[in-house]
């Protein structure tokens, strides 16, 4: 339960981190909050030869708003996201998701950028980033580029980040007028990874819901948009769709993978129930 020996490079700027990554390439990993990477190192599932510690970097943290764009720096701690009034006002989906992200001690240390870069398929923040069509800002000595969340998550613990690149920030559009959101997951214990979960959004005008979208997580090798489920739900309104029809739509959108606790059928059932919960929440007046 101790990590393999590694070389620790402490940097104080994104440029310093990029230089270290350029020099060490695939041997190196970025160390941000370490709340996922260090357990994997302690289990020796991960054994990087070099860790580039970015915790002292200035300019990588903080939540800022420029016009309609909300930018969360890579080093933004979960606690800061969870307690930010800017997030609560402009990104209510994130505010709904944060209570499900980790225990208190984990949230004091874990980072927004780290959660996306780690790309655990059962994690909450990648699912939110996908539903909100977030733009992931990635940098290296070669320059800066932006990757849409839909292109960022490539599979189990796999993202579009190249070995010499560093996740710098994530940018989101502030909530549109009349946009409503829902976030539901099932976990065995508060703060644990979800067995499965659903993030949902819609535009609500009066009693009508439009532009409904769903992302499922904890069901495949990455968070997945569920367009067939959204079409079914839109067609059924104002009634809720039947659970059997929901499962059919779900099967058209994604091949659900089992984990060490749940069969695909069990996960499909959990997700279908969570979709019904989410639709109920989207339809209710007075919800965010």
């Amino acid at each position: 339960m101790k990590p393999r020996p590694f070389k620790l490079i402490r940097v104080d700027s994104a440029e310093g981190a990029s230089e270290a990554l350029a020099r060490h390439g695939e041997e190196a990993r970025i160390l941000a909050g370490g709340q996922s990477l260090v357990p994997m190192m302690n289990f020796r599932v991960a054994a990087p030869a070099v860790l580039v510690d970015i915790n002292a970097c200035t300019g990588l943290g903080g939540i800022t708003r420029t016009g309609d764009i909300i930018r969360l720096g890579a080093l933004t701690r979960h606690r800061e996201t969870a307690t930010s009034t800017l997030v609560a006002d402009a990104l209510p989906l994130l505010a709904m998701a944060m209570p499900h992200v980790g225990h208190l001690a984990i949230c004091n240390r874990g980072t927004f950028g780290g959660s996306l870069a780690h790309a655990d398929p059962a994690a909450e923040l990648p699912a939110c980033a996908l539903l909100l069509d977030g733009s992931v800002v990635i940098g290296s000595l070669r320059g800066e580029r932006r990757v849409a969340a839909a292109d960022f998550f490539r599979g189990l613990y796999t993202t579009a980040i190249e070995p010499d690149e560093l996740l710098l920030a994530v940018e989101f559009q502030a909530r549109r007028p009349n946009a409503v959101f829902a976030f539901h997951e099932l976990a065995r214990r508060h703060g644990d990874f979800a067995l499965a979960g659903i993030a949902a959004s819609a535009i609500r005008v009066g009693e009508m819901l439009g532009d409904i979208a769903f992302v499922g997580f904890g069901i495949a090798d990455r968070p997945v948009l569920l367009p067939s489920v959204a079409r079914l739900a839109a067609g059924a309104l104002p009634r809720l769709p039947q659970i059997a029809a929901l499962k059919e739509a779900l099967a058209a959108d994604v091949e659900i993978l089992p984990d060490n606790q749940q069969s695909p059928a069990m996960k499909a059932h959990i997700v279908a129930e969570l979709i019904l919960d989410a639709l109920g929440q989207l339809s209710r007046k007075g919800t965010a």
Partner: peptide
């Protein structure tokens, strides 16, 4: 030693965190 049990909880800069998920060398 992988962040689940909480027995190693300590306080860094006024906030609790897991003592097993940070390295001493990071505490400069």
């Amino acid at each position: 030693e992988h962040g689940v049990c909480g027995a190693c909880t300590i306080v860094v800069d006024g906030r609790i965190q897991r003592g097993c998920l940070s390295f001493a060398a990071q505490m400069e």
